[in-house]
Amino acid sequence: MQLLEGEKELILACVDEVLSNNSKNRENLIPILQKVQVRLGYLPPLAMEKIAEGIKVPPADVYGLATFYNQFRLNPPGKHQVKVCLGTACYMAGGDITLESFERRMKIKESETSPDRLYSLERVACVGCCTMAPVVVVDEEVEGKVTPTRVDGIMLALNEENDKSNLEQEPEQGRMDSDELK
């Protein structure tokens, strides 16, 4: 995915900051990756290279970790993040149909981000509200009993919101809640 203007500087500054606040040993590698991801929203290749340099491990090791663990994402999160639960209960209630409906409407596949970075789509293991299956999480809001019609409704609302904010300002990028992790 293409870096946006000014994103490179942001990445370098963030990695520098995280590295200087943590002791640079192998045991800290996963926590460091987590902290960088919290700040940037994802792990761009540049960040992984810089971290590898800082901790003195081969970049392949860092990439290996980033792809081994489900938590790490290599694509930037979209402005609107949709997570479709495919835990056992949701799957049985048709979660895969919901996922397909989103794929159809967003024109991207699961775990991808749309080129304009407006939407990203993920599947998650279990949100923990199996009684409301099938469940999707739209920008941290949980929606229960989602049918394809509801998917259309959700997309309509998101599109409308985008049109509105487009008129007002450029979408913010790489927004994050930095108090999640220290």
């Binding site: 949100v127 923990g128 509200c129 009684t131 409301m132 469940v135 949980v142 229960g144």
Partner: peptide, 8 residues
């Protein structure tokens, strides 16, 4: 207000 409750 465990995660399940929050979701609901």
């Amino acid at each position: 207000t465990a995660t399940c409750g929050v979701a609901a």
